[in-house]
Amino acid sequence: MAGTLAVSAVLPSFNAVLFAATKPKKGPWYGIAIDIEKCIGCGSCAKTCKIENDVPPEPFFFRSWVEQYTIKKDGSINVVSPNGGIDGFTQKIPDNEIEKTFFVPKMCNHCSKSPCVQVCPVGATFESPEGVVLVDEKYCIGCRYCIQACPYGCRYMHPTKKVVDKCTLCYHRLKKGLNPACMDNCPTKARISGDLNDPDSEISEFIRKKNVYVLKPHLNTGSKLYYNALNQEVR
């Protein structure tokens, strides 16, 4: 009895993975929600992202891309993302061999405990007051440590600027009251972004009502990209 009391007295309350982030008290705190049940794999998000943000067109540089996961009846997993899904997907595996197949759009998770921000030696990548992870292209030295530290493969070395580049959640659009380009151009509204600090926002409701997951929760990155209907095979 006394033991139980002593323990409960010192035990802090643990945060759920979904709320691992420490939100600011004031102002917006952006997160992303993607509904896999609505994604049709058209690649509009990846395409518009490249155009909106001047991402080099070569198939090695992506701020946003789509993967098709196929779990075959024989138990094997097949994943493809031809040109990041920009040109669409052609189903190569016949229907009768497929146990399950689905699209997974990927982008920066805008982690609140970002491994990439942690390792930047100069303070060139940082979390904005709104919870958006950004790169200062005038200050980045191009050491690429952040690329190594990102568990989700969301960063790349810009081939001509020679600095690291990544998703900004279209910070330039957010600040003008617009949605990110990939969200606006999703034909099925499978992806939304919004203010996690506002309990009435669409994203807060999404997280509340659906059984959402984040990628690689065991890495404790404080990811703010929430998926509905995410399969456990997805990494």
């Binding site: 198939p59 994943v79 493969g153 790349y156």
Partner: peptide
């Protein structure tokens, strides 16, 4: 197999 599209380039 499958690699993330940004992983083709070896950074270090």
């Amino acid at each position: 197999g499958y690699i993330y599209p940004n992983e083709i380039e070896l950074n270090w």
